[in-house]
Design a binder for these strands. Structure first.
Lengths: 247, 247
DNA sequence: CTTTGTCCCTGATGCAGATCAAAAAGCCTG
DNA sequence: CAGGCTTTTTGATCTGCATCAGGGACAAAG
C-alpha cells in the first residue's frame, strides 16, 4: 500500500504549480475537472501565483480536525481520506478525495475533519485568506465553489442513506459503484477500480468492521462478481453489483 | 400530533410575505436567523417582491425527490422532514427543517430529496430562476448561501458519524442534544424539546427502528434523564445526555 | 357510543454483523 | 531472504438491534 503509482494516471504528469513554465496550470491534468476549470486564463494565472506546491508521501497528514483552517487545497494527484475521530478512537471516514477534488470548500474557521494522504499526493495549496479574497472578488468562482459544495452535500446525503438504511452487501456494492464512477471521470477505463485505502478504511467509511468488508469482498469474488487484484478490484459483473447497489 | 401549535413561538406571528404592510419582512421572526438576515433593506424589499406566501397543513408535501426543482423555500413557521426513499420503501430522513431554514440551497436542477410538513407550516416560496438571478447579482448573498450550504455539509458529516459509528443510545442522545441546540436558537428556553416528528421519523433519521427509539426514550425516562411529554421531551439531566452524545 | 386509524409502548425471538482469535499473505528493511 | 511489520482472510461465537406480535392510548369519523 505504501507505493501507489496511480495506475489510471500513468502518463508522466505535469503538475499545476510546477516551476518550469510560466503556464503551469495549462498542463494540469485535473484542471478541467476541478475548480480551476471555471477560471478565465488571466484568473488562472492570478490563482497560480497564490498557490504553493505541496507534495506528501502516503500516511502524511494534510490537516487535522478542529485545527485552524489556514489553508485550502486542490488535489492534483494521489488520494486522501477525510475523517472524524471520536474521543474513544472510533473513526468515521466522511469521504475519500481524488485528484481534482478541493479540500476546504466551506471556508470555515476550523476544519470539520482530518485529512491524510492514502498515497503519495500532490496538491496546490493556498492560504485560506488569499483564496477567500480571490473568490470574493469573482462571483462566478464563488458560484462554482458553491456548486462543488452542493455536490458534496448531496454525496453526503447519499452516504447517509447508505449508512442508515442499507445492508453490508449493499454498502459494499454502492461503494464500488460510486468509486467506479468517480475514477471514470478521471480516466478512460473503469472495470478495474483502484482501492488506495485499506479494508479498515472502507469499513470506517461504510459503518462496518474490517472483517465484514473482507468477507463481503471475498464473497463477491467467490461468486464471480468481481476479481480482487493488488490495490483494487476488477468488476466482472457490473450489472449485478449495480443491482445490489440500487437495492 | 395533528395540530401542533409551535409551543416555542407562541406569540402571534406576522409572516414574511404577509399582505398587510408594505414591510412584511421587517416583522418576520426568523429573518435574522435566515438567509434574509444577510440582506440590505432595499434587497429585502426586492426579494420580498419575488416571494409567494406558502401555507401547508401537516403531512402535505413541499416537494418530491427527483422532481424538477422549480422553487426554493424559506421556512417561516412549522417544521418539515427531508428524506430519500429507496425503491423497496426503506426511508432515510436526511434532516429536519425548522423555522429559518432554507430549502433549495443547492440550486440544482432536481431535488435531491423529498420534503413534507410535520406540522402546519408557512414559508416564503421563490421561483428558483428568479431567486437564482437575484443571488447571482449579489455576491454577498451568494456568499451567505454558500455559508449555509457549508453548515449543512458539516451537519451532514456529523450525521454520518452518528449513523456509522454510534450505538442506539448515543444516537438518541446526540439527536436530542442537537435538536435542543437548534430550538434554542429560535426561542429562549431549551429544557423542553418539541418533537414534531414521530418515533418512526426519528428512527429513519438515526438508522434505527421505531421500537428501538421507543425503548431508548422510555429507558432514559425510567432512568430520570428525561421526561416524555406530549409532542416532546423535557430533559431532566442534560449533563448525562450530553455525555452520552459525546461518547 | 362505537369504530377505525395512527401512534406508542413492551415482550419474545432471531439474525446480521460485531467481536474474538489466529492463520495466511504481503511488505518493507537490514 | 530473513525477520518483523501491517494487512487481509477465515472461522467460531456473541450480541445489539431488528423483527415479530400484540396491547393500550388517543383522536377523528360515523
Amino acid at each position: 500500500m505504501a507505493s501507489h503509482p496511480e495506475p489510471h494516471l500513468a502518463a508522466p504528469l505535469t503538475l499545476c504549480p510546477n516551476a518550469k513554465a510560466a503556464t503551469h496550470c495549462e498542463q494540469c491534468r485535473v484542471r478541467s475537472l476541478s475548480l480551476c476549470g471555471a477560471l478565465e486564463p488571466d484568473e488562472l494565472i492570478e490563482l497560480d501565483r497564490l498557490s504553493r506546491p505541496l507534495s506528501l508521501s502516503a500516511r502524511e497528514t494534510i490537516f487535522e480536525q478542529d485545527e485552524l483552517a489556514d489553508s485550502v487545497f486542490n488535489i492534483t494527484a494521489g488520494s486522501a481520506r477525510l475523517y472524524r475521530l471520536l474521543p474513544d478512537g472510533r473513526r468515521q471516514i466522511v469521504g475519500f478525495a481524488l485528484p481534482g477534488d478541493f479540500l476546504g470548500l466551506s471556508l470555515t474557521e476550523r476544519n470539520a475533519f482530518s485529512a491524510d494522504a492514502l498515497t503519495p499526493l500532490t496538491a496546490c495549496q493556498f492560504s485560506r485568506q488569499a483564496f477567500s479574497d480571490f473568490v470574493d472578488a469573482k462571483p462566478h468562482v464563488l458560484r462554482k465553489l458553491h456548486q462543488l459544495a452542493s455536490h458534496e452535500l448531496s454525496m453526503a446525503q447519499e452516504q447517509m442513506v447508505i449508512l442508515g438504511r442499507r445492508t453490508a452487501e449493499e454498502k459494499i456494492a454502492s461503494f464500488l459503484i460510486g468509486l467506479r464512477k468517480r475514477w471514470a471521470r478521471l480516466s478512460q477505463q473503469s472495470v478495474t477500480i483502484p482501492l488506495p485505502m485499506t479494508r479498515q478504511d472502507i469499513g470506517d467509511f461504510l459503518g462496518l468492521t474490517v472483517e465484514t468488508v473482507s468477507r463481503m469482498l471475498t464473497r463477491l469474488a467467490r461468486e464471480k462478481a468481481l476479481l480482487i487484484v493488488p490495490d483494487g478490484v476488477r468488476l466482472l459483473d457490473v450489472k449485478r453489483i449495480e443491482t445490489m447497489a440500487e437495492s
